[in-house]
Design a protein around this nucleic acid. Structure first.
Lengths: 242, 242
DNA sequence: CGGAATGTTGATATGCCTCAACTAAAGTGG
DNA sequence: CCACTTTAGTTGAGGCATATCAACATTCCG
C-alpha cells in the first residue's frame, strides 16, 4: 500500500468522514512522482490538465500572470493538498501553479479520479469538500486584501499558513519552514516590497512573529491572531457527520 | 415539470454536457420558493445551511462581515446561479448571502441534492463544476483587487457581470439591470466611495460604459474589455466533452 | 410632499508606491 | 574553501493617489 495515498487519506480525514472501504479505494489510485525545482511551474495558464497533483513534499503556489508580466499569487499549498483538484472539471487552466522551494508531487490521472468518484461517491464528496475549502480560502483572501490594514493583512496570511500547517502536522513546535520570498508576499497581498518589508518589521516589533530565511516562528499566537483578526472557522477543519 | 428547475438545467448546460436522463432527474427536485426584499439576508455567517438556493429572479451577493461591522462583498449571483452550492459540504457558513434589490430563490434541501448526486454522478459533476467556476471568479477577484488599477478594477467587474448576464440570456441588448449601489461597489473593490465615484466618472468619460440607477449600459465592449484587461476564459463557459 | 438613502464634488492630510542606494545571504565555479 | 556573481532583503527620500471628512445634490419611497 502506498504511503503517498495514505497521506491523501489523512488529509481527507481532517475534514471528512470516510469508511474503511472508501479509504482503501483511495490507496488503489495509480500515480507518478514528479520533482520540482524552486520556482518551476507545474502547470501554466492555458494548459489543459489531464492529471491532478497531490503535494508530497514542499510547497506550491497558484498565481495569475498578467499581460504586463506581473504576477498575482492566489494561494499556497502544502503537503497533502491537491491544488489542482480545482481543475478537475475544467478544460483550460485560468491560473498557473509553481513550486515554492523544491517540491515533490504525485500526479493522478483525472480519468482515474472520475472512475473512483462514480464508484465511491463519498470519496468524491470529500474531494469536493476539499475544493470548497480552497474556495473559502480564496474568499478570505479577497477580504484580506480588500478590507484589512497592511499589518493585519500580512499577519492574517501568516496565521493561515501556520494554522493549516499545524492542522496537517507539518510544524515543528511553533516553527514552520515555508520559503516564500518577500517579493512573493508582496505579490500575494497587493503591497510593494518596500511596504511589505516595513509591515513585517512592524510585526517583528510587536514580538508576535519572526520570519527569516523561510522560517516562520510564532512567538505569541493569541496576540498575532488578534492583531490579524484571524478566525480559523473559514478553514472548516472539522469532521462532518456523514 | 418545473420551469424553475428547467432554468437550472439551462445553466448547467452552459458549461456541462448532460444526458436527457440527467436533465429529467434534475426536474424532479423538490423546492420551495422564497421572496427576498432588497438587502435582506438569505443566510448569515455562522448559520448551518441545510438547503441550497437557486436564484429564480433578481440578484444575490456574498459578503463577509468584519468585526468592525464593515462589509466586504465577495461576488454577485444572478438568475440560474446556485450561490450556496459553495456550502453543500460545509457545516457553518463562513460568509453571508443577501439580496441586491428584490429577488426570488428556490430552496432545495441538501439531502435531496446528495441523493441525486449518488444516483446520477454526472449531475453532481456539473454542479461541482459550477462551484469550481465560482472559485475561478473568486481567484479573479483576488487579482482584480490586488493587481489592477482602479479604472481596470471597476471595468473588469462590470465586464464580468455583463458577460455572465449575457451568457445566461439576461441582458436586453447592451443593457443589464443590476441594482448594486456605489457603496457596495466600493465594498467589493476595496475603494472608498469617493474614489469609486471618480473612477466611474473616468469610465463614463471614456464613453465605454454607462451606469445609473442600477442600469448598466455597454457603449463600447471592445474598448472596455481592453481597458479592463478582461479575458472571459476564467469563466469557463464552454461545454465540456463528457 | 417630506425624509431617507444614494450619489456627487471639493479640500486636506497621509500612507504608500516609486526609485535608488546599499547590505546581507545564497549560489557558483575555480 | 574562497572570490565572485546573483538574488534577496533593508532603508531613505520624494511625490502622488486615495482615504477621510464635509457639504451638497439628487433620487427614491412612503
Amino acid at each position: 500500500m502506498s504511503d503517498t495515498m495514505a497521506a491523501l487519506n489523512r488529509k481527507l480525514l481532517e475534514h471528512s468522514r470516510l469508511t474503511a472501504a472508501d479509504l482503501r479505494a483511495v490507496t488503489t489510485l495509480n500515480y507518478t512522482i514528479r520533482a520540482l525545482d524552486p520556482n518551476e511551474d507545474l502547470i501554466r495558464q492555458g494548459d489543459d490538465p489531464s492529471v491532478s497533483a497531490l503535494v508530497v513534499s514542499g510547497m506550491l503556489a497558484r498565481y495569475h500572470l498578467l499581460p504586463s508580466g506581473k504576477r498575482q499569487y492566489i494561494s499556497y499549498h502544502m503537503e497533502g493538498d491537491m491544488p489542482d483538484s480545482q481543475a478537475l472539471f475544467i478544460e483550460k487552466m485560468d491560473h498557473a501553479v509553481c513550486a515554492i522551494g523544491s517540491a515533490r508531487v504525485a500526479l493522478i490521472p483525472h480519468v482515474q479520479l472520475l472512475k473512483l468518484f462514480e464508484a465511491r461517491p463519498f470519496v468524491g464528496f470529500a474531494i469536493w469538500r476539499e475544493t470548497l475549502i480552497d474556495a473559502a480560502i480564496f474568499r478570505e483572501a479577497i477580504t484580506n486584501n480588500g478590507a484589512r490594514t497592511k499589518v493585519a493583512r500580512l499577519g492574517h496570511l501568516l496565521c493561515e499558513l501556520f494554522y493549516r500547517a499545524k492542522a496537517s502536522g507539518l510544524t515543528d513546535g511553533e516553527t514552520f519552514y515555508m520559503p516564500i520570498s518577500l517579493v512573493q508576499f508582496g505579490e500575494t497581498l497587493g503591497m510593494s516590497i518596500a511596504t511589505l518589508n516595513r509591515t513585517l518589521q512592524s510585526l517583528r516589533k510587536s514580538r508576535t512573529v519572526e520570519l527569516q530565511r523561510g522560517t516562520l516562528h510564532i512567538r505569541d499566537w493569541e496576540r498575532l491572531a488578534k492583531i490579524s483578526q484571524f478566525d480559523p472557522a473559514y478553514l472548516h477543519l472539522k469532521k462532518a457527520p456523514r
